[in-house]
Simulated scan of single mutants.
Amino acid sequence: MREPSEVGLAVKRLQHRHHRALSKALSPLGLSVVQWDTLRHLDRNPDASLHDLAVLTFQTDQSFGSLAVRMAERGLIERVPGPGRAVRHRLTDEGARLRAEGQAAADAIVAASFDALTPEQLDDLGALLDAALGADPTA
């Protein structure tokens, strides 16, 4: 029987493999994984706040604020005033283009990673991960 720590390590190794492969695939686009992840979340959450994007990308507000400024300077996102002191973020046309190209690379990487699984096994794995995430009150 596998120990939970072994399973956790396998999940982390798979995530690390995806991260390395995606870093390599995004490099020709001039994007880091964190930048692409920001574009991906903005595509799904237009007008998201800095704090919301920091949470979605696993960063602090301060580190995400620096990243957002650099991405705006590159023309990948726009920072627009929101209610009160809030700043909202939107994809530019260039950001949307690079997000789509990065998404194609990410989809190929993840699909290849799970190629050895049958569709049923993939469904089972997804359900098991959902159950494990649901069991964690800090998630």
Results as ranks from 00 to 15, higher is better:
4 P>W: 00
58 F>W: 12
51 H>Q: 13
62 Q>C: 02
18 H>D: 01
125 L>G: 04
57 T>H: 15
47 D>H: 05
10 A>F: 08
60 T>Q: 03
96 A>Y: 02
89 H>P: 04
111 A>D: 09
44 R>M: 00
4 P>C: 02
72 A>G: 02
64 F>W: 08
53 L>M: 08
107 D>Q: 07
91 L>Y: 03
86 A>Y: 02
134 G>K: 14
1 M>D: 12
103 Q>D: 10
60 T>E: 12
136 D>C: 00
42 L>V: 11
25 A>E: 14
4 P>E: 02
84 G>T: 14
123 D>H: 14
117 L>I: 05
106 A>Q: 00
83 P>I: 15
117 L>Q: 09
16 H>K: 09
124 D>T: 15
8 G>I: 05
33 V>R: 06
39 L>D: 06
83 P>M: 14
65 G>K: 07
115 D>P: 01
129 L>H: 09
77 I>E: 00
52 D>M: 10
42 L>S: 04
109 I>D: 02
43 D>M: 03
87 V>P: 01
41 H>Y: 14
53 L>R: 09
71 M>S: 03
90 R>L: 13
60 T>L: 09
132 A>Y: 00
80 V>E: 10
85 R>F: 15
50 L>E: 10
100 A>C: 08
113 S>E: 06
85 R>A: 15
57 T>Q: 08
66 S>E: 14
73 E>I: 00
108 A>M: 07
108 A>I: 01
122 L>M: 01
111 A>Q: 10
54 A>D: 02
77 I>V: 12
37 D>W: 13
119 P>A: 14
44 R>D: 05
137 P>F: 01
83 P>A: 15
49 S>F: 05
36 W>A: 04
51 H>D: 06
2 R>W: 12
